[in-house]
Amino acid sequence: MDALIDLLPELWTATYETLYIVAMTLFFGGLGGLLVGLGLYLTRAGSILENKPLFFVLNLLVNFIRPIPFIIFLAAAQPLARAVTGSGIGNNAIIFTIALAASFAMARIVEQNLLTVTPGVIDAARSVGAGPIRIIFTVLLPEALGPLILGYTFIFVALVDMSAVAGYVGGGGLGNFALLYGYRQFNPIVTWAAVLLIIVLVQFVQFFGNYLARKALRR
């Protein structure tokens, strides 16, 4: 317990780092997932921008990247992270890698949520002369907003999960904190402090996500 009190400044720093990594990856990964998910949805057979080759490539890419365990993906994508962020280690490298992995995971969720929009409302929009871009912003995204918010809440938890291994490539955060000061120094109390903080964080975000989704669905 005394050890934990001594480590409090490090704990707060780690919490801040986790929040930072998760926020950044939620933004970039979320955006990437939205784009790839929209791409999957729009290019599939029978959709408004049907494009079989593009759909095939996107679909293959998503299926290819999604099943790779993240810690392996982290190692495999390190050269790419180095090329893009200038360094293969540290918080920026981990943010890049998580955002990349999350894009493809999120893409599936976005695609599935968009598929719940009744094709009829897209017909209705087309019948009054709306083009694809307008349909995306005035029909698809607003109509699927509730499920999309829940999808992003779901991916948030996955981001917290992925961020925990940041310590392996010299990043920070609560995962690194638990490993470094709890696990390696045989101090379960320190580990559990990190666990507790993560539970609180996830609960809070889940609650907030549910609230927003309820508002969007007006239920």
Partner: peptide
């Protein structure tokens, strides 16, 4: 299409 209105069996209103 602006000159042709259309109504549907399932109404197809925007729920949002």
């Amino acid at each position: 299409r602006l000159g042709i209105g259309m109504i549907f069996q399932q109404f197809n209103l925007l729920g949002s």
